[in-house]
Design a binder for these strands. Structure first.
Length: 914
RNA sequence: GCCCGGGUGGCGGAAUGGUAGACGCAGCGGACUUAAAAUCCGCUGACCGCAAGGUCGUGAGGGUUCGAGUCCCUCCUCGGGCACCA
């Protein structure tokens, strides 16, 4: 394709209109309450050093089209884009390129802004922000102090200020249980317990309730990255998502966010949002709610001490033939008998050396050892041996289980290996169903004394009830979700607004002292280690004394040296778009109410890779802000849409190396690089597969309008599809076709255009159909079929001799969200003085869609045998007559008896024959 | 292993239970041109047939229905998620 085609000069047109929109602030969003609002959002992009490839704009173009459409439909649209520029990827890029992240980040943002600009996106540029700006992260820090100053009220399941808790404790309306670290409510008011506590105990208890807290817990320590990572940032191979380095569990003192207290609401409120079902499912699985029974087992040799387990199958209690403790279980030492002490210690040592990877994936074989001690089954007093095994996890339930080998695959495997008895207590309802053990299905109880014969469901409830009466059991709910590890030992992140006193006192930096700015540091690199036993050292520890040390009321404090993780900024950026320059608040309440409306963000588009991480974290923060009255919706993102990835062909040679996709020659279905045969595969576009296609190249060669159109024409937005530069000619031809129908070779308007109403009936009908189809398709984000329909109409215009200016103006309006530059240019040449982007979306007249005649298909036994035009309101009799006069129908009916006739007016007439 | 989402021409993909393959790419033939590019017209699922037309055809096999790519059951296969969560 020659970019200097004499007719359609997109190289001039596109920059002209981009400048026009800029200068006229065409897409500036303001709080115009006379119009309904529409808030459309793209997932927060990270400004990669590699720049965009054509896969990135897929979602950006989709939201742009939809936003432009909504604007033309009369909505006040908020659509902008900022940059998630803090975090590991940005910092790793800086390290790899030997640049300071502040510099590389700024450069990468500038490049990305340029790339986005040339796509003609209708963003409100004045609302663009970056998480690395102090005016932004001061509010990230502010929200952190809110989390620090809050607890979750167990009754109301609601975040409230710590001062409320203190007041309640002092008034005695709630009690502090210092054992379980739980807030308990009791009938009578009693402040004695609280008043009896020492100051330290009080502080400890309060800390144990804060939504942001410090804790020493086994965390994911990645020595090579020099930082700890959240569970979500560790692959199931036990390596870091970024860099694929080994990760070790180490108990370290870290900041955590108590997201677990919101587990139930995060689960429940999924019903409030319009999200793809698979994403909701992933969140449900991640939260992992499980209803069951908590059972207390007395210990044979240790009176008074009890072992707490959680089970979802209380009905199988009579089948519990052994117990298992997690290796980290606090009672393990107490329980282990003297003769077993040595072997247990050897066992613990053998597994503590293992990484998570070895403990889970590779260790298919169960390991464990007997502790020497026994527990008593509360239903029958039988003693049950207690083992320790690493297949039980300390982090779930109580870190101990009752093992029922007959009805649990894992327990069965373990029992078989260690010769532990297996007692069947459930048999299938239908005898003859899978009798083989382990059987984990439904059934009725056997070998269970008084419960024998009951259905498993009934028995589960009854046993739980009976245990509860005896005080050794109760219904219980467990979640897989863990608290969120929130600190990183890295430089490029938001500093914590926290000060540490010499005596261990922790105080937040006051609101008037925010932001705590990241100190400029030459040496920002993390210390990385190959020895997993080294402790992390945050780079901020090397900042100058005047930053790390702070005076408050005559006391010296040390700043928190960790930084926040990547996810912090993306938890609330959508609220800042609403009021990006506010220096008094993160967002003004009035603007928040207007733009968030009833359901929050009206459309949120992004990849499915954020299904649990970002979306769960952001929902959590939003709920806290909601509880504290800072936002007005329960959920941040009312509707979510996942766009599919764009894949591209990549070519591997014999030695497994990737050859540049641009230099591949194809011959008879085989592919060659420099004469050598290579194999084709498909993968995510990127540097490593050497198959990136930059939007810059495509824009230069075909223009942004063509790229936008092609990205949308490739296939359904939600599905994964391969990029091929071949097909792009098609949509480019379509645009040029429209151009030529409107502009003659001499640059004047085409002589085919007539003034006044459309005179051609078919053009009128097809235009109506096109308005209808495009409107419905855009509304449902089916951009590919909307484009097809416009192609059909353009092909029609080409065939007719004349068409009205009005018809073609309407077409341009339909086209304008997709190819805005060309649409503006032609709209302008047709005489308009205002932007097409501000014109009103065409509506269709259903009555004009109806034709006097309709095509009815003839079928014999459901098989197509012909068709004919009949009057729209033709009766069955009339249609039968027409059909029976058809040659093919006659042939197929010959000698057969008509048993039945099915007539669907305007569609088919079907003869059922014998 | 469990839970989702797919499988339709040479390719990307269209089809409220009602003509499978819209639209586009690629391919073939033609027009225009000194020639090319661009553009336009025609053909293009497979097989049989001069044609009219017929038979088959949406991963495989069964079923429901007058009629199934579409609904139900079983299986194969690709992609994604979770994975000792008691």
């Amino acid at each position: 394709m020659d970019q200097n085609s004499p007719d359609y000069e997109f190289t001039n047109i596109e920059p002209t209109w981009q400048k026009y929109w800029d200068e006229h602030k065409t897409f500036k969003a303001s709080e115009d309450t006379s119009k309904p609002k529409y808030y459309i959002l793209d997932m927060f992009p990270y400004p990669s050093g590699a720049g965009l490839h054509v896969g990135h704009p897929l979602g950006f173009v989709a939201t742009d089209i939809f936003a432009r459409y909504k604007r033309m439909k009369g909505f006040n649209v908020l659509h902008t884009m900022g940059f998630d520029a803090f975090g590991l990827p940005a910092e790793q890029y800086a390290i790899e390129h030997g640049v300071h992240p502040a510099i590389s980040t700024e450069k990468n943002i500038a490049n990305m802004r340029r790339q986005l600009y040339q796509l003609g996106l209708a963003h409100d540029k004045e609302r663009s922000i970056s998480t690395t700006e102090t005016s932004f992260y001061r509010w990230t820090q502010w929200i952190f102090t809110l989390l620090y100053d809050c607890y979750c009220d167990p009754e109301e399941q609601k975040a409230k200020p710590i001062s409320d808790l203190l007041a309640a404790l002092e008034a005695g309306t709630v009690q502090a249980n210092t054992e379980t670290k739980k807030i308990e409510t009791s009938a009578e008011q009693n402040a004695d317990v609280w008043n009896g506590l020492s100051d330290n105990e009080k502080t400890d208890f309060i800390s144990s309730q804060r939504l942001a807290y410090m804790s020493e817990l086994p965390v994911n320590w990645c020595p090579e990255l020099g930082t700890v990572l959240a569970n979500e940032e560790v692959t199931n191979q036990g390596r870091s998502e970024r860099g694929n380095f080994p990760v070790y569990k180490r108990p370290l003192h870290q900041w955590m966010l108590r997201i677990t207290t919101f587990a139930e609401r995060l689960l429940e409120d999924l019903s409030l949002v319009d999200w793809p079902e698979p994403i909701k499912m992933m969140q449900r699985n991640w939260i992992g709610k499980s209803e069951g029974t908590e059972i207390l087992f007395e210990l044979d040799a240790i009176p008074g001490e009890k072992l707490r387990v959680f089970t979802t199958r209380a009905d199988t209690l009579f089948g519990a033939t052994y117990m298992v403790l997690a290796p980290e279980h606090p009672l393990l030492d107490t329980i282990t008998t003297d003769d077993q002490k040595a072997s247990v210690e050897t066992y613990i040592a053998s597994i503590s050396d293992k990484s998570d990877l070895e403990r889970t994936d590779l260790a298919k074989d169960k390991t464990g050892i007997f502790t020497g001690n026994y527990a008593l089954n509360p239903v029958n007093g039988k003693s049950i041996p207690i083992w320790v095994a690493d297949y039980v996890l300390m982090s779930y339930g109580s870190g101990a289980i009752m093992a029922v080998p007959a009805h649990d695959e894992r327990d069965f495997e373990f029992a078989t290996k260690f010769d532990i008895p297996i007692t069947q207590v459930i048999e299938p309802f239908e005898k003859g169903d899978a009798q083989e053990l382990p059987y984990s299905g439904e059934g009725r109880l056997i070998n269970s004394e008084g419960y024998t014969g009951m259905s498993f469901k009934e028995a589960g409830l009854k046993i739980t009830q009976d245990l509860e009466e005896k005080g050794c059991g109760k219904l219980s709910i467990q979640y897989k979700l863990r608290d969120w590890l929130f600190s990183r030992q890295r430089y490029w992140g938001e500093p914590f607004p926290i000060l540490h006193g010499e005596d261990g006192e922790i105080i937040p930096v006051g609101e008037d002292q925010l932001p705590v700015e990241l100190p400029p540091m030459e040496d920002f690199r993390p210390r990385s280690y190959s020895d997993p036993d080294t402790l992390p050292t945050p780079p901020l520890g090397r900042a100058t004394e005047d930053w790390t040390s702070v005076e408050r009321d005559g006391k010296t404090y040390r700043r928190e040296l960790n930084t926040m993780p990547q996810w912090a900024g993306s938890c609330w950026y959508y609220l800042r778009y609403i009021d990006p320059t506010n220096s008094e608040a993160f967002c003004s309440p009035e603007k928040e109410k207007y733009w968030m409306g009833e359901n929050g963000v009206d459309l949120y588009v992004g990849g499915a890779e954020h299904a649990v991480l970002h979306l769960l974290y952001a929902r959590f923060w939003h709920k806290v802000l909601y509880d504290l009255g800072h936002v007005s919706t329960k959920e941040p993102f009312g509707k979510l849409f996942n766009q599919g990835y764009i894949q591209a062909a990549a070519f591997v040679d014999e030695r497994g190396r990737y050859a540049p996709a641009t230099e591949i020659e194809e011959k008879d279905g085989d592919f060659f690089y420099q004469g050598a045969k290579v194999k084709r595969e498909f993968g995510k576009m990127g540097k490593s597969l050497k198959n990136s296609v930059s939007p810059d190249e495509v824009c230069q060669e075909y223009g942004a309008d063509t790229l936008r159109l092609y990205l949308m024409f490739l296939g359904p937005l939600e599905s994964m599809k391969p990029w091929s530069s071949k097909g792009i000619e098609g949509v480019h031809r379509f645009l040029r076709k429209i151009w030529r129908e409107i502009v003659a070779i001499d640059g004047k308007l085409s002589s085919k255009i007539t003034d006044g109403d459309e005179t051609d009936a078919e053009t009128t009908r097809l235009l109506q159909e096109t308005i209808k189809k495009v409107t419905e398709d855009v509304e449902a984000l089916r951009f590919n079929t909307a484009i097809s329909q416009m192609m059909i109409f353009a092909n029609h215009l080409q065939k007719v001799k004349k068409f009205s200016i009005e018809s073609v103006q309407t077409l341009l309006q339909l086209l304008s969200p997709f190819a805005p530059h060309m649409a503006e240019e032609l709209w302008n040449r047709l005489g308009a003085t205002d932007s097409i982007s501000l014109s009103q979306w065409p509506s269709f007249d259903p009555s004009k869609l109806e034709t006097a005649e309709v095509r009815v298909v003839f079928q014999i036994n459901g098989k197509f045998r012909g068709n004919a035009m009949v009057p729209r309101d033709a009766s069955q009799e009339d249609v039968v007559k027409v059909a029976q006069a058809d040659k093919r129908v006659i042939a197929h009916l010959a000698g057969k008896e008509i048993r039945k006739i099915i007539y669907i007016p305007g569609k088919i007439i079907n003869f059922v024959v014998g």
